[in-house]
Design a binder for these strands. Structure first.
Length: 209
DNA sequence: ACACGGATACTA
DNA sequence: AGTATCCGTGTC
């Protein structure tokens, strides 16, 4: 049982500052966890890649919840992705946790992931939710009042690099992805992100045009 | 290279 | 009801 999780005030700052500050902190989830080595910041306003831009439900989530609240959604119908709400500072935002360096509950994470390769356990946003057992049922949980889930302060110094965000089509040029320099546990190394195609559509026969 | 797969928000 | 889009992963 851990009691010294990061307080709510940690998430009441500028989202870009928070996304950087989270690197090197430990994400703890029901006995499993790892050092955060990759995050992405999304801004509630003026960021077309943020869910709040096109989803009324996401805007309602920001209105309704406090800083430090879990935001979980299903992406591509396959993977749960976990974010934390940043609110009450100069701007509101949502920070995606993209990769961890596994350090706690590794046997359990290996079992959920079906691999013993430490680099394959949490090196992506969908991988880490699978490793930690995170699903849509965890949406709107609180990182700052629970004793099962939360963040621990940075354990060691971390050299932070900024790069463009991964997998998005809109506002793809914002350098709002933050990683540990030369970490072996990130999803995509700096500068290696593939550009998303401008459009991809399918006709009635289900064939890509 | 592509299949996998469902929530969300449109159009009507 | 039907359609378009989407912050990914594993295997081909």
């Amino acid at each position: 049982m851990i009691k010294d999780f990061l307080p709510r005030t940690f998430f009441q700052v500028h989202p870009l500052e928070c996304a950087r500050a989270l690197l090197g902190c430990e994400l703890v989830w029901n006995g499993c966890g790892g050092l955060i080595v990759e995050t992405e910041s999304y801004a509630v306003f003026n960021d077309e890649a943020c869910h709040t831009f096109s989803r009324p439900a996401a805007r309602a989530f920001v209105e309704k919840n406090r800083a430090g609240t879990v935001y979980v959604y299903l992406n591509y119908g396959v993977h749960w992705l976990i974010n934390v709400l940043v609110k009450g500072g100069p701007e509101d935002g949502i920070i995606l946790i993209r990769a961890l360096e596994p350090i706690r509950g590794i046997a359990e994470m290996e079992k959920r992931r079906g691999t013993n390769d430490p680099r394959a356990l949490c090196s992506g946003p969908g991988k880490l939710t699978q490793a930690l057992g995170i699903t849509g049922a965890d949406h709107e949980r609180d990182f700052c009042s629970g004793k099962q889930i939360g963040f621990l302060p940075r354990r060691r110094p971390m050299e932070v690099v900024a790069d463009t965000r991964i997998g998005i089509r809109r506002a793809a040029e914002f350098p709002w992805r933050f990683l540990e320099h030369e970490s072996a546990f990130v999803s995509v190394k700096p500068g290696k992100g593939k550009a998303m195609p401008a459009t991809r559509r399918k006709n009635k026969q289900g064939q890509t045009e």
